[in-house]
Amino acid sequence: MILHPGVLALLLGGLVSLLMLSAGALLGIRIARRWNPDGAEADQLSLERRAWLVAVLVRWAIVFEALSLLLFIYTAEVIHPLFVGAMCATGTLNANPIGWHLIWIKLLLFLLGGLWMVLNHLDLQCPEAPLTRFKFIALIPFLPLAIADLTLMVIYFAGLEPEVITSCCGALFSSGGDGLASELAALPLRPMMIVFYAGLAAYGCLVLLSLLSRRPWMHYLLALASGLFLVLGLTAIVSFISLYIYELPTHHCPFDMLQRSSNFVGYPIYLSLLGATICGLVQAMLEYLCRIPGLSVITSRAQRPWLLMTLFFWMLFALLTGWPVLFGPLAMTAYF
């Protein structure tokens, strides 16, 4: 167990957001059960007011989770000197591979939470509030995720054993790094670059086409593509974009780019990637919700701005990942 201040902060944040999420979800389920627009006025009013509380609780929990993802990566970065052989956050995560699952869970919570907030916003736009029941039932999957998040965090930090010199002999240990990262890093460079840029271009075309055409399947396709785009983007960051950013042919760390030494370039990169993904996923949601009477006007009005945002994030991401590869000082031709 490591009693680092950052670890304490993370556990506290995890605990608070779990409490808020579970309070919100439980309250939400109760509201969903009793929700009845034609029911007694006084009951309905108190449900409406509780719905506000749920929305606020969930919103804060999501914000905390998002911040906690950042803090987690930072903490992993900061405590890496505690582990033999760890050079950056990747090493800390490899020291107890549960850390990788934590990142996925936090990321998933963040994505789902973002979608839920859009859903909540749409529901509040419409006087008939047709989504109320659905949106509160949609909170249920958050509960296991939040519980898993906190539990894994505890297990992760409890399982981290810094090798203290006084109890073992010397620098003769090093953590073998055969996690996911090393597999990603080992992907062949040239095909990977081709696949990534082809995917990037295809995704951009799809966004543009969706802007022009109003066919429903287009938007579903876009959402699917957004999911793939996220995976592809993350893979490419580990596989080669990181190399160009650090200007080192062997440094694959996806987290170092969040540091000052790389001018914090990681923030816009990840933000644009996640932004494009969320905005793309929202398309499918809007398309699906179009069928619900009373919502079609609101959703079809919302589609275009979300598409434009997708396009914006896509361009930002393309620019940020293309720039160092095209104009950066590192030339990787020898590695092709």
């Binding site: 490591i2 009693l3 201040p5 405590i79 010199i165 006084t166 620098a171």
Partner: peptide, 15 residues
């Protein structure tokens, strides 16, 4: 390694 130990000790105390 020494550095690591120092960090661990101070972090632990701070924690």
């Amino acid at each position: 390694e020494l550095l690591r130990t120092y960090h661990a000790v101070f972090d632990w105390r701070g924690g």
